[in-house]
Write a protein that binds this DNA or RNA. Structure first.
Lengths: 173, 173
DNA sequence: CGTTATTTGATATGGTCCATAACAATTATC
DNA sequence: GATAATTGTTATGGACCATATCAAATAACG
């Protein structure tokens, strides 16, 4: 084909069943047809993920915690005494990229690196008292504002089903 | 608290119910407890999305199409005669970032920009013959390798339920 | 008509996230 | 004790995302 470089006065094809889409009568712009896109798992998944993260950030605005930072605090709380490599790798964060992240959390006095006496190469990660307090407040915000929103949108049983399917995909795809 | 800057010979706390996790007997490293993380919507959603994209790229390796590029081709095919702004915005892509993307697709002769005669500012987007052919092959690959994987993992009815819930989240969260 | 405002594609630029290579200090291996 | 491996770190580059700005074209409006 190679397509002629100039359109012939608007009519590549009368557009399916006519209606004269883009000639004279232009309403509010006319929404595009998503078509098969709305059935693509990756597409819908990505859009949902963006919306969820966006909502998460709004809920956490007062605490200034990103999803990634929240996950670090949760994991450190649940697994005290672990070093950077262990925490980072289970979160899928590469060690080099984890450094700046910890610098941030540590500068805000939310967690601390402690040089291990077993292996003086590694830094053991611990939540500070402030970190524990902030995490506790974060959990409440997430529960009451964020996850609650999901419940009222899908219902508890659907919510559970969704989480289950996503976990399955995350682990077995 | 402010945490003493050196750990006292490995024992921030005996770790829940003992078992002497990190002292002497170290097996394969001992997996960390995800805890509440595995119930966090955002966390599971993000991980699932990464896995799905990763799988998509593998399936499309022969055609060298990313999820974003595939979505552009799909949308242009379904909505011929639209300009860059329209295609980009419905995909959530900002106009400046869409330029390089189109440069790429156009350089590979998959789509073409046609200066509109109605409005000589805008470029109308069209798939080339090669673009249509590649998209057709891409659709088959996605259907047989990618989405099929999802079906055998969840079953058709669960797949439909998942897509529905994700769409709801993407649109109403 | 002409002047101003808006739109479209494009460039430049900066930020964030992700990935790789390399390094010093420390520990493990042999 | 010499060599290899590990830990945290730095440097760096790529991919993606966001904003400001621009020239060309069009729209709006006096």
């Amino acid at each position: 084909m190679t397509v002629s470089k100039t359109a012939e006065k608007s009519s590549e094809k009368p557009a399916e069943t006519a209606k004269g889409r883009k000639d004279a009568s232009e309403g509010p712009g006319e929404a595009l047809q998503l078509g098969e896109l709305s059935e693509q798992l990756g597409y819908v998944l990505k859009r949902a993920q963006l919306k969820v993260f966006e909502n998460f950030l709004r809920c956490m605005a007062s605490l200034q915690l990103t999803p990634a930072q929240f996950s670090v605090l949760l994991l450190v709380e649940k697994n005290p005494g672990r070093n950077q490599t262990e925490i980072a790798s289970t979160l899928g964060i590469l060690r080099p990229n984890f450094v700046a992240m910890l610098d941030n959390l540590e500068s805000r006095d939310l967690c601390a690196r402690i040089r291990s006496t077993n292996d003086r190469r590694s830094h053991i990660l611990v939540l500070t008292d402030k970190g524990k307090a902030v995490l506790a407040r974060a959990k409440k915000l997430v529960a009451t504002k964020h996850e609650a929103r999901l419940n009222e949108l899908l219902g508890p049983s659907n919510r559970e089903a969704l989480l289950g399917m996503l976990s399955k995909i995350a682990n077995e795809f």
